[in-house]
Every structure is written in structure tokens, then in C-alpha cells.
């Protein structure tokens, strides 16, 4: 029997006192568990959460910019500003540098984002720094198309938003996993509709939101939210689990007040009784092999 099933009596008492966020409670074996909190934010990933994405397809890279939220244009908090987009692009390029062959051509999918010649040049420069080459621009805005053509890229103007943004509201398969080799520092924010794999540390103040699993090959000291669209089967794994807060689907847990003296690779999952538990990676996979989970 695995050691992660015994819940100490104190677990429920603590969560009664502070029902908003329950702490992860260490049990006798050094594993942790927590009470569920129904109020946990499970809004999932919405269109406004879209980030700069790089996706390889048929020997070229697609660079997708987040859309501009025209309906809320007067509210700067609702969509990314140009400088934030550019910064995100640079960070993503740094984090995946060695995954692309030099001189790969890049197709920019600008959607409805308005780009002038200078901004296009900034994107092209950032790509050149990563030894990539901007060749083609897809856009639904006439001004962007004109700017791109003037700068000398081949342009494809598509009028229909739906055509550019095929991800409808219907249930869909997740995106391919996002792989990043980077240290995510305070303020760093990764959102992805799929599984996220990070080779590096998550520093305090950073956050990762994924609709799939989250794998951290390093220290997890920020906030991680797996299964953000509500899949409680999702997992969070880290070589060293010291999170501020972890969320799986709509369950929330915070770190225990007294961190364990020693760290092992650990896995966080939602136990059948509706609590987030943490188990050592070795024991977790063994337990899974005998079908103990679920």
C-alpha cells in the first residue's frame, strides 16, 4: 500500500479554520496532502490568455501573436501591449534556441494585430538574433499587410477571423507540449493549452498555467496550475517541489508551513477523496503501475 493515503486528522481541522486555501499537510511518511477548496479559480485558459507561440510545422516555424482584444481596446489590462508581446517573444526565443536549426524560415501569423514597419522590423531582428528568418506574414489587417509588403516580406491577407483562429469553443485535442529551457524568474508567466515542460527553475513569483500536465526539471518555487480547463487527472512534477501554491483543475493547495528538510523528485496529483497530494516520484509511478490511482 502506498503511503499517501493516510490523512492526518489535523488536515481537516486546519481547513475548517481557513477555508479559502488549505495547506498541503505532510503525513507521517513525509508526503503531503490538502483539503480541496471548491472556490478555486478554474476559469481555464481563455482567448485573452493567449501568449506568443512558436510552433514548428512542415520544416518551418509558425510564430503566432496573441490577438488584440478590440472589444476591450480601451482597457489596457485586457490584452498585451506591443512591448509585452515583443518581450515575450524574446523570452520564448531564448528558451528554445537550440531546438531549431539555424536559418529556419518563420511565418508570422499576426491575426488581427496591427503592426507597423518598425514593429515588424523588431520582430525580424529578434528572430535574426536567434538565427531564424522571417519570410512570410499572415494578417487580417490591411495596414499590417501594407507595412509587411513595404518591408519586403511576402504577405497573405486573410479577411476572415475564423479562418485565422480555428480554435472554436468545441472540445478539442490539446496542443502539442510546450518545451522551454529557461529559468522562469519572478514575473515570468507561461500559459499553454497543453502540457508544459520546463528545463530549469521556477523562481518565486513566476507562474505556469497549463491545461495538461506540468513537468519541471528543476525547482518549483512559483505557482503551477495544471489541468486548467478542469481536468483533475493532470499532474505536476518537479525535481524539487517547494511551490508557493499549486493548483490542479479547481483544487488549490499551498505549501506546508514547515518545509521538509530533504527534497526528492515529487508528483502532485488529486487523490480520489478530492485533495491535492504530493508523493515521491518513485513511489507514485510504482503505485500507478499497480493501478492504485483512481
Amino acid at each position: 500500500m502506498t503511503s499517501d493515503t493516510s490523512v492526518p486528522a489535523s488536515a481537516s481541522t486546519i481547513s475548517d479554520v481557513a477555508p479559502e486555501i488549505a495547506p498541503i499537510v505532510l503525513d507521517l511518511e513525509g508526503n503531503a496532502s490538502t483539503e480541496a477548496t471548491p472556490e478555486a479559480p478554474a476559469e481555464g485558459l481563455q482567448e485573452r490568455d493567449l501568449q506568443v507561440r512558436l510552433k514548428s510545422e512542415g520544416g518551418k516555424l509558425l510564430l503566432m501573436l496573441p490577438p488584440e482584444m478590440e472589444t476591450e481596446a480601451e482597457n489596457p489590462a485586457s490584452s498585451l501591449t506591443w512591448s509585452e508581446v515583443l518581450q515575450q517573444l524574446k523570452q520564448r526565443l531564448n528558451a528554445g534556441e537550440r531546438l531549431w536549426l539555424a536559418d529556419t524560415s518563420v511565418h508570422l501569423i499576426a491575426r488581427d494585430r496591427l503592426l507597423d514597419g518598425r514593429q515588424l522590423q523588431a520582430i525580424a531582428d529578434a528572430l535574426t538574433d536567434a538565427q531564424l528568418r522571417l519570410t512570410r506574414v499572415y494578417t487580417s489587417r490591411r495596414q499590417t499587410a501594407v507595412a509587411a509588403a513595404t518591408t519586403g516580406y511576402s504577405v497573405e491577407q486573410q479577411s476572415s477571423i475564423a479562418q485565422l483562429n480555428p480554435s472554436g469553443e468545441s472540445a478539442q485535442a490539446m496542443e502539442e507540449p510546450l518545451y522551454l529551457q529557461t529559468t522562469l524568474r519572478s514575473g515570468g508567466d507561461v500559459r499553454h493549452d497543453g502540457t508544459v515542460i520546463i528545463l530549469g527553475d521556477l523562481n518565486p513569483g513566476s507562474s505556469v498555467v497549463a491545461t495538461g500536465d506540468i513537468l519541471i526539471w528543476g525547482r518549483l518555487r512559483g505557482t503551477a496550475h495544471a489541468g486548467a480547463k478542469g481536468n483533475a487527472q493532470c499532474l505536476i512534477m518537479a525535481l524539487q517541489m517547494e511551490p508557493n501554491q499549486i493548483r490542479i483543475a479547481d483544487f488549490v493547495a499551498r505549501a506546508p508551513e514547515n518545509p521538509p528538510a530533504q527534497h526528492y523528485p515529487e508528483v502532485a496529483y488529486v487523490a480520489p477523496q478530492g485533495t491535492i497530494r504530493i508523493a515521491r516520484a518513485l513511489e507514485f509511478s510504482r503505485a500507478q503501475a499497480v493501478g492504485d490511482r483512481k
Binding site: 524574446k90 523570452q91 531564448n94 522562469l184 524568474r185 519572478s186 514575473g187 515570468g188 518565486p204 513569483g205
Partner: peptide, 18 residues
């Protein structure tokens, strides 16, 4: 911790600015 947290953020921004 507050100063270190902010420093961490700034280092990230510097890296993004080459």
C-alpha cells in the same frame, strides 16, 4: 525577500533585452 524577488524580475527583463 522583497528586494530579491524584484531583482529576480529585473534580471529576467534584462535577459529579454539582450
Amino acid at each position: 525577500i522583497a528586494a530579491v524577488r524584484d531583482a529576480d524580475r529585473v534580471i529576467g527583463l534584462l535577459e529579454a533585452n539582450n
